[in-house]
Design a protein around this nucleic acid. Structure first.
Lengths: 243, 243
DNA sequence: GCCCGGTATTGGTAATACAATATCATCGAG
DNA sequence: CTCGATGATATTGTATTACCAATACCGGGC
């Protein structure tokens, strides 16, 4: 018998696939802000899904602030300032359609604002469990050796643990966002980076947190960030990574 | 005939009402992280809605990271570190169930991290349209006179415009969040504050942005924030506002 | 020119079939 | 007889179809 796998990647829940396609189309600008999308039924037959699935997908896009839907006047694309750009899906779509360059810059602008503060707060508020988690991630970075995947994984875990250690819920989703975004970027351009220096700098951050020295932690985070940013810039400019 | 209006506020789309109830219940801790909520059908009859509506509500809560749903083991509450605390609904629920005190503090921690940076970036990148919008909000603050509602509205518009003027999409949702959160707080404890001083400080921020002086803008935002935080602290402590 | 009803489009409900999976019972081997 | 693997079953989420309600817009009739 002919399996259904033949069409498309599958295995994802279908309203997610649908939402993906619609979201990409919107981010790509196929439907400009203010425009109305085709009516539900047209969309259904265009993508070959049921109306319920389409409605669930639309529900999701509404939650992300991309569109607004009212009876009779259709579902319209909202102006971008209403979009939830911190949503990981929105971010992913954005990365797929627009040039990465400016997004790296903007993301580091935000990270530059939040991460030194988060690190300082973590140095102030971190519990011993937090300390253990951060230290474990650091050790994993060291132990990763030449394995790029492991290293990146541990690196992301390190920073995410710091955001968690703030014990401030508002910082958590931001750490989550960076984790996803950076992973996506590494997927695009696998980054060797200056591993020895990175480890030293992460160690400085770790020590400041363990010793509960907020100011030192903030400073360490700042230097780490500055170097990370210039690393990525160098890579984007096509310079060969030097180890 | 008996109108349906009798039960509840109404006029909101029903899956939103349902999501509201479920979200509140989760935030209230009625369903602890790891717990499974009742099966869909039970929930449907408990709240008196159709399965589709319930599914749409659940879809929304999944998008906010509150729950996760898998066949057979039910829909379970995820650990709070996965919740999207930057989502305005999550924030609203949190404010309704937990004490405001610590949330004001945490929110100002974040604001302290982002707003000086955003203001500096706005001073660097703001276009003339941005300048007009910010200035208009400032004028509205001045013109508000003794009308508290107008003043708060203009105040929020002022800060939101600054976040928009960064031309960095990642800052936009954060500005949006503060706008919603502070409005909610003012709703709870109407804040007269030091209006004359506030206007002067906002004027300093405005001038720095118009003159494109990032460092001055950052500094002005910092002093403004420091005073705003202590104002709110004083109010929370029950001290009478002095004008 | 104004009112009224038709129509198209989204919002909401219901019923049904399908798929995935944890639990439990049964069967067989040691 | 006990332990373990394996398969049936019940439960629960997933997906489709169909139908009715509310509403904004359009056009015709008075």
């Amino acid at each position: 018998m002919v399996s259904l796998e033949s069409l498309g990647n599958q295995s994802l829940k279908i309203h997610l696939r649908v939402a993906d396609q619609l979201g990409l189309a919107i981010l790509r600008g196929e439907y400009a802000p203010g425009d109305a999308l085709p009516p539900e039924i047209r969309l259904c037959e265009m993508l070959g899904v049921s109306r319920t699935a389409m409605r669930e997908a639309i529900r999701g896009l509404i939650a992300k602030g991309l569109i607004d839907s009212r009876p009779k006047l259709g579902t319209r694309v909202r102006p971008p300032e209403y979009w939830n750009h911190l949503d990981v899906d929105v971010l992913r779509w954005q990365l797929e359609v627009s040039d990465t360059e400016s997004y790296v810059r903007k993301m580091f602008q935000l990270r530059h604002a939040t991460e030194p503060a988060a690190t300082a707060i973590a140095a102030e508020n971190g519990t011993s469990e937090d300390h253990q988690r951060i230290e474990a991630a650091f050790n994993a970075m060291v132990a990763a050796g030449s394995d790029n995947g492991l290293f990146v994984e541990a690196d992301l875990a390190f920073h995410k643990s710091i955001y968690l250690a703030t014990h401030n819920e508002f910082f958590w989703p931001i750490g989550q966002l960076f984790s996803v975004a950076l992973k996506e970027m590494f997927r695009i351009a696998a980054l060797g980076s200056h591993r020895p220096r990175a480890i030293i700098e992460h160690g400085d951050v770790l020590r400041a947190i363990l010793e509960r020295k907020p100011d030192m932690a903030r400073a360490a985070a700042l230097t780490l960030l500055g170097n990370a940013a210039s690393d990525i810039r160098r890579i984007r400019e096509g310079a060969p990574e030097q180890r």
